[in-house]
Design a protein around this nucleic acid. Structure first.
Length: 454
RNA sequence: GGCCCCAUCGUCUAGCGGUCCAGGACGUCGCCCUUUCACGGCGAAAACACGGGUUCGAGUCCCGUUGGGGUCACCA
């Protein structure tokens, strides 16, 4: 079943990382999905930096995040920073407070921690008891006189069951009594995630919030915030998280980012192809561009169970993509002077583009090889024949058949010593393609050298 | 512990009561091509977690068990 997308309403999605760390595969997948969905529906994709935490946010990481997204091929249509929008959040809190939907609370972090422990100890859910709601004006004055400063909580409406139609999880239902009134502003006046995110989604016109399922309970809380602020909540889609190949949640996954991909020689399009379709019912297949991923994007294909991310599978996909890369797509990354013919000859044997460098010497440099005693005479004969055959047509076929006739060798015993002597390796691309590129003189020299003749 | 998801081949999944002795993709294995290894082409093996119901009939609906994931911060 295909999901039908709104045609009149213009879609606006957003990716909202906080610049406190580098992006990893999980983040990158969410960013990509938001971008793909926006492109698919002719909408806009926003990058919103959630940098309300001054201590932990770093400017260099903002740049790194942009670079990581660009590497993947994802570019934002607009960018916003929460650190420049504090006045909006002040205004929103003032409105909520005036409407009785936000209230000051004075417990310390330690006191709250203790309450939770007691509740948990009794087998009760650790939900905030709303003690601060019972504070009188005198109580508050006394606390402030003692030097206490309040943090602020959003007051959930216990009589309004929370519901939304999730684009990947279906109908969701939450009972507000079982949830804590979320703290929205710290004692020191700085903002927590909840309110700024809601305010921005409203004011920036976000129509679809696509994020990981670790946000579902946040969404339950935010649905009421949207309503308390007089806005209609956007559509929500919570995708299942990625887990490591071992099955359990993996620490390693959190450190798998663009840097690790570059180290492993993974092409951006390979990661994009993997990330776009992992956990969906669509096949993970080699693609040449992001376009097919845009066209096939569909929430209806998303699974609801966590999917395993396996680096080995990614490498295999990467290899298949490399095998199809045209010369002009990689020319600037190949050894200087490597021709299209060179590239096409070695390409089917590469796991990543970097490996091309290793083939440069084999094609146009030198190979030193000493063959085992039993092959020396054979190779010496090969050198003579290589010098004698016609190189204009298909020298490999000519050399092989002449050698077969002359020595009686066939199959592996015929080919393996030749491959080793000519390329220095046990495996590689088809010799018929390599030999003409190596050239007659160099081939003869290598065969003689391997035979111990020079 | 409460709440929310999930449970089909090794992996990601299709399946929305009969058309399923369960389909696809990746991986694995085999064959072909290549007078070698790879690439490529073709083909095969491979799964409904368990226990109760409901029903003429259950992978498909209900309950439970077990297992997996998420969340319950003055993180995001």
């Amino acid at each position: 079943m295909k999901t039908s997308y709104p045609s009149q309403m213009s879609v606006v999605t957003r990716f909202a990382p906080s610049p406190t760390g580098r992006l990893h595969v999980g983040n990158l997948r969410t960013a990509l999905h938001n971008w793909l969905f926006a492109r698919r529906s002719g909408g806009r994709f926003l990058l919103r930096l959630d940098d309300t935490d001054r201590e932990r946010s770093r400017a260099d990481l903002v740049e790194a995040i942009r670079a990581d997204l660009a590497w993947l091929g994802v570019k934002a249509d607009a960018e916003h920073r929460q650190s420049q929008r504090f006045d909006r959040y002040d205004a929103a809190l003032a409105r909520l407070a005036a409407a009785g939907r936000a209230y000051p609370a004075y417990e310390t972090a330690q006191e709250l921690e203790l309450k939770r422990k007691v509740q948990l100890g009794r087998g009760l859910p650790p939900v905030y008891d709303r003690a601060a709601l019972g504070l009188t004006a005198e109580d508050r004055a006394r606390l402030e006189a003692e030097g206490r400063r309040p943090h602020w909580r959003f007051r959930l409406d216990h009589d309004a069951p929370i519901e939304w139609e999730d684009l990947v999880r279906g109908r969701q239902h939450f009972e507000p009594r079982l949830l804590s009134d979320p703290v929205i502003r710290r004692e020191d006046g700085t903002w927590l995630y909840m309110l700024p995110s809601t305010v921005d989604d409203i004011e920036l016109g976000v129509t679809h919030v696509l994020r990981g399922e670790d946000h579902v309970t946040n969404t339950a809380l935010q649905v009421q915030m949207f309503e308390a602020l007089g806005a209609t909540p956007p559509a929500f889609a919570h995708e299942a998280l990625l887990v490591g190949s071992e099955g359990k949640l993996s620490k390693r996954l959190g450190s798998l980012g663009v840097e690790a991909m570059n180290e492993a020689g993974i092409e951006p399009i390979a990661l994009a192809a993997k990330l776009a379709r992992i956990g969906t019912s669509l096949p993970v297949e080699p693609v040449a561009s992001l376009q097919p991923l845009v066209e096939s994007f569909d929430f209806a294909t998303f699974g609801r169970a966590p999917a395993r991310f396996d680096m080995e599978e990614l490498k295999a996909l990467n290899a298949r993509i490399v095998h199809g890369l045209p010369h002009q797509a990689v020319a600037d990354r190949l050894p200087h002077g490597m021709s299209a013919a060179d590239w096409e000859a070695i390409r089917p044997n590469l796991a990543c583009v970097d490996e091309a460098a290793g083939w440069w010497d084999i094609l146009h440099g030198h190979v030193e090889q000493n063959a085992p005693e039993e092959d020396r005479e054979f190779l010496s004969r090969a050198a003579e024949l290589a010098a004698a055959i016609d190189w204009s047509e298909s020298p490999w076929t000519a050399l092989a058949s002449a050698l077969k006739t002359a020595t009686g060798r066939a199959g592996k015993s015929l080919f393996h010593p030749l491959r080793r002597a000519l390329t220095g390796r046990d495996s590689g691309p088809e010799m018929a393609a390599l030999l003409p590129l190596i050239g007659r003189d160099e081939a003869v020299a290598r065969l003689r050298s391997a035979a111990g003749l020079s």
